[in-house]
Design a protein around this nucleic acid. Structure first.
Lengths: 232, 232
DNA sequence: CCACATTTGGTACAGCGATCCAAATTAGTG
DNA sequence: CACTAATTTGGATCGCTGTACCAAATGTGG
């Protein structure tokens, strides 16, 4: 119907899959999952949607690929120095995952999706292999390897996801504030709760204000590693 | 412009907030998060979008409300019998959450979102209060209450989210199959992995096939409860 | 130079959440 | 009972989305 005006010249440098993924990650980091639209992506890359779909498929596949890229990089982290205990290995990977989600908050929900939907994908398998590979050296008997690995993975991914912060507006609480302000606001709000109905929250509101996320995360890992040594 | 033909008579039974939420939960259970569209909801309730927005606000708020409803019900679960140890209390709530997510898989991602975005909401606070309220009776010293509660909550929510199954198509693996088929397919796929690169996955593929989700979940809780007793 | 496969930019379409508003209903007041 | 104000409803509309599709532009091998 419409007379196609065939004007625009091609880009001189061909579009690559990596380039698209990197740009997608940047946009996700900057504005959360809702900021990654195909249209915004095509505009940013000065191309059309056809090229995107040709290289990376649908938006959902692009999100999966972005997740794989970031998680894969985190999983490649190794302890510095020469002699690392299995505990060291686990702590290093766990912290790498922690930092990855801190840097890319959109991972919190995407990671769950990926693990639920694709237990054979590189993300699920990679995490499991990397963490589980240490439990033998920890002294866990072979029959309990799967249980031990599951416990660690569940805790690590749970903690890491729940520590992601502020995608969107945190409904009511100070929006774009940074980490300390966030915890201040949260603990203040906790203090406002009915002490009769929420005695525990009142008991810990002070610790909430002073605590350090990473230290608390490592404490949890220490608790589990300790508990694992008693696995029959 | 268009001459508004004002024909249709009113519904005899007024629309209620609960009715909308219940219907929303049904639709979410049946088809996952993507199945809950405002349009489908209005059609199912034979109403218009105005009524929905009047009663429950935006789609996002409706999802939050649905989450609160389901989680709130799960948190109300109490141990049967008279004398329950703190360990019993924790196991009962944990299993209630486990079953809630098994029955409503869409919760897996929604729960993360809610905890991240709204640390003052009834979901976050409710879970924390319910679980944390037990750690004192467990013998954990007061100074470690927050750490202990965090560890438990992180593990429980992590495990529970990662055990949700099959929203959508599980990419490649048998789609609408039930639980056993799912694990069979997954473990078979794991077996196909390169044994050099994934020695751990090969070592546990047998346990994977035979394991029981709920038992494994409880094993993890036992490990943590054990570890918590050694918290300084 | 040509034929063919690859890669691109852009259009079109169906569907979405949300806003808005006039009409329909109910509740309140005298 | 009548009349008004507040509540509640259904639907039209808007701007935006993902993506299927296509013709043109580019690269490639003979």
């Amino acid at each position: 119907m419409t007379t196609r005006a065939r004007r625009p010249q091609r880009r001189n440098q061909v579009l690559s899959r990596e380039q698209i993924i990197d740009t997608a990650v940047e946009m996700l980091d900057a504005g959360g999952e809702s900021a990654l639209t195909i249209r915004a992506l095509t505009e940013r890359l000065s191309t059309g949607s056809g090229a995107i779909y040709y290289h990376v498929g649908t938006r959902d596949e692009l999100l999966d690929t972005a997740t794989e890229t970031v998680i894969g990089a985190a999983l490649a982290t190794r302890p510095a120095g020469t002699a690392a205990t299995p505990g060291d290995e686990i702590r290093v990977v766990a912290l790498a995952l922690f930092d990855a989600i801190a840097a890319h908050q959109w991972l919190a929900t995407r990671l769950s999706l990926q693990i639920i939907r694709n237990p054979v994908g590189p993300v699920t398998v990679g995490i499991f292999e990397r963490i589980g590979g240490q439990v033998g050296a920890l002294g866990v008997p072979r029959a309990s390897w799967f249980d031990a690995a599951s416990t660690l993975v569940h805790y690590i991914l749970g903690a890491v996801s729940q520590n992601a912060r502020i995608e969107g507006d945190t409904s009511g609480i100070d929006p774009s504030g940074d980490r300390d302000e966030f915890f201040d606001a949260a603990s203040t709000a906790w203090q406002g709760l009915d002490p009769e109905a929420y005695p525990f929250m009142h008991a810990i509101v002070g610790q909430m204000r002073e605590h350090d996320d990473r230290e608390q995360f490592l404490t949890g890992i220490a608790v589990i590693l300790d508990g694992l040594t008693h696995l029959c």
